[in-house]
């Protein structure tokens, strides 16, 4: 049931549980009409997380003891290399969301598609441009005209 690295799950669970309890302290609004109050469920959830966190700490300790020493583990350099594409996608997505109101959907979406294609190892620029523009056009037509969604157009809106 338990693995060596479950202590990370345990610590994260306990920390989130403590965070919820601290944050719930300011929510005590019990009335005769609402005996439980708004903090009841979050506090129950928090204690549940703390208990399960402790169980994972004990379980991980037991698993490490039972399985003996580790045979091998990837180096930090290898780990960074493994997650490079994920980090790049996160950064691109944050920029997409952050710039949506300024640059608008029609400029940002082809850039989003193009940059993700680059991140996932597509290097044919002509193909990247074609896919990005064509997919943006399809999405825009479906959502804006078919489903009547108002997308921000950024500075294009001022030009129109």
């Amino acid at each position: 049931m338990f693995k060596r690295d479950d202590y990370i799950v345990g610590i994260a669970s306990i920390l989130i549980g403590i965070f919820i309890i601290i944050q719930s302290a300011g929510l005590k609004v019990k009335t005769s009409l609402d005996p439980a109050g708004p903090e009841a469920l979050p506090v129950i959830v928090a204690w549940g997380m703390i208990i399960i966190g402790i169980i994972h700490l004990i379980g991980a300790w037991y698993a490490n003891k039972a399985l003996g020493e580790r045979t091998s583990s990837p180096s930090i350099k290898q780990k960074i290399e493994d997650y490079k594409s994920v980090v790049a996608m996160v950064v691109i997505s944050l920029a997409y969301a952050g710039l949506m109101e300024i640059l608008g959907y029609l400029i940002l979406t082809p850039l989003l598609i193009g940059s993700i294609l680059w991140v996932v190892n597509m290097r044919d620029l002509k193909k990247i441009c074609k896919i990005s523009i064509a997919m943006t056009a399809i999405l825009y037509v479906v959502f804006a005209f078919g489903l009547q969604v108002d997308f921000p157009l950024g500075f294009i809106e001022e030009l129109l």
Binding site: S93, G114, M135, V149, F151
Partner: peptide
């Protein structure tokens, strides 16, 4: 790669379309 890029765009477009708020992205 095309599938990853296109689905990402579709998901973010869907998230935005639901609430018209970039916060949902």
């Amino acid at each position: 790669p095309v599938l990853i890029a296109v689905i990402t765009a579709l998901v973010y477009t869907g998230a935005y379309a639901y609430s018209a708020d970039a916060f949902d992205i």
